[in-house]
Design a protein around this nucleic acid. Sequence first.
DNA 1: TGTACATCAGTGAACGCGCGTTCACTGATGTAC
DNA 2: TGTACATCAGTGAACGCGCGTTCACTGATGTAC
Lengths: 210, 210
Amino acid sequence: VSKPPQIPRRSPPRAPVTEGGQRTRAALLAAGVAVAERHGLAGLSVNAVVEEAGLAKGTFYVHFAGREAFVDALHQRFYARVGEAVAAAAEGCAPGAARIVAGIDAYLDACLENRAIKALLLETRSETYLTSTIAERERLFARLIEPSARALGWPSPTIAARLFVSMTSEAALVELEAGRRVPAARALLHQLVARPPAAHSGPRRARRAG
Amino acid sequence: VSKPPQIPRRSPPRAPVTEGGQRTRAALLAAGVAVAERHGLAGLSVNAVVEEAGLAKGTFYVHFAGREAFVDALHQRFYARVGEAVAAAAEGCAPGAARIVAGIDAYLDACLENRAIKALLLETRSETYLTSTIAERERLFARLIEPSARALGWPSPTIAARLFVSMTSEAALVELEAGRRVPAARALLHQLVARPPAAHSGPRRARRAG
DNA sequence: TGTACATCAGTGAACGCGCGTTCACTGATGTAC
DNA sequence: TGTACATCAGTGAACGCGCGTTCACTGATGTAC
């Protein structure tokens, strides 16, 4: 009796073991960045990526489970880089205005250096199946700001953090469109941080209760 | 001699002339809203829309030049509604903090009432071929804020207006996720408007020169 | 009143296209005996 | 040293699928004569 063919199939992609394999995987990611830069996330097809990289279509699936995994890998990479830069910049400062400002600047600089991916990220909301992982990573930045907001005594630190992240993201877009730093945008962010909202302005008036 | 068939082809879609035609066009747009609500912009295919509306695929092309024109029509509709609400709310106020606040509130309320479209709009950045028209419409809101920012003496009114629009948009998302008004988010926006950035904090120090 | 024609809206089968994915295969390199 | 086998990376033709769009057609309504 011949035993069933043991399902050789295609093994699920894992980190390449050969040097050549590592280079190929890196080349695919680099091609992804290039394609995204030119055609955005919508144009980031497997076809376009392998053509850009000069590889066969099958090779793509040697290294990535599919398009979704590929986009996620790009995303992860970008956030790792930016996250490191932001964390490094914020490291020295205690939670507070100076730390937010340091983080904002590091974030904006990192975006300028990875412009393709930043633009790509803005489009990511449309690919619904990815949103959970991606939204999570984005929330990380808000969580970086939150303690500072809390330390500054802002009334709604969680929401405030989120709004500030959104604003910083828009500032990054302004700079990407300009192709350079835009000091006016940064100054605005800095000043909004430095002159933060006070406690409730509503009926309650015991602002300096403590 | 037989004259050439005069190219009857398909006439380019224009406003329907019959009452039935108008109803059909409206039904397609309503179906588009429903589909967008469930599946987002990426799921907003012609197939899905006509199935939702219970019409033949050909009918779609009787009323719209194509998918792009359809999405644009949805977009236009939403902005018309929101724009009206915002303009009406801001109308009474002279440019200044009160006007921005009134506009922000009207915007947030309108988004809560048109949640499908608001969510859809967030994804619109990914469809590159539409961006020009859409980006233009979005800039309208920034232009609504700009004179107020200028009147308040903010250092970079154009950029400030854009950042505030982005923040308001994020606040709309917060509210859509919560499914209700989020007073904390609104209070934050109000306070940031009320305590705006002063003139330059840099080397120049003649803040109250005038 | 009857007939011919024009206009408008609606239909659904058919089309071509690009997409993501699969798979049987090749070939290089490493390892066992 | 030679041979057999395993592993890993790479290939490209082929597949099915859903998409946006087209088109010849139907049928209802209005208008001219």
